[in-house]
Amino acid sequence: MANNAYHSLLASLPHLDSLFDCKQLPISRFQLDQRLSALGFSERALLNEIEQQMEWGNEAPARPEQNSTAQEFDLIQHAHSLINRVNSPDLAALLNWRLDVRTVVAALRKRMRGEKAPGYSRWSFGSRREFIRRNWNAPYFNLEHRFLWLPDVAKALEQGHSFEAEKLLLAAVWQHLSAEAAKQRFSFEAVVIYVLRWNVLQRWTSYNHEQAIVRFDQLVEQALGQYAAALPE
């Protein structure tokens, strides 16, 4: 894609304003994909790979012939190769930051389960995996000054408030991406950051959607009263 063509693509994308106030996505996935078709083939492929790697709750692809450690190793290898292929220091730093967030949360969960520090350095991805391993027993892995939200997330996880922890993480990722978006102007990096922000927004609005379905079911049951039991499963 010609450098200048990012102007039309980015100007055609609606502004993503606020995370928690958003009730509806400003642009659907179908429309977003249509607009992103202005990207060149290789850029689109790279963007898809970044999205898959960064997607919230992304897990190793289920491959029955491999055990979970081998699958984890594949995922880590893939993340490293992706960062090496990204031809932009800003983007590589952003991807590393996002992977660091996932690593530090994974480390928190592992430690809460009573697991010991991993025995090998390539136990996860991100640029701080070795630092986390070396500071396994320190409160918040000595990263509380780097990740200001870490103590709150750790407390929420300890108290079993998973939704609260997820909300804090979403807010942290949104804030970081918004700050990075402000630094970029009409470039591939700006497109990637937009799509990652859209994914965070989509994640948040889907939570509300799920909540709405639960509430809808409650209202239906309430309305049906004693006849609710007569309905087929």
């Binding site: 102007h7 100007a11 994308l13």
Partner: peptide, 14 residues
């Protein structure tokens, strides 16, 4: 004009 025009075209989609 090309840079600004491309932005204008993009904005018109939105």
């Amino acid at each position: 004009c090309s840079l600004a025009g491309q932005s204008a075209c993009g904005a018109m989609l939105d």
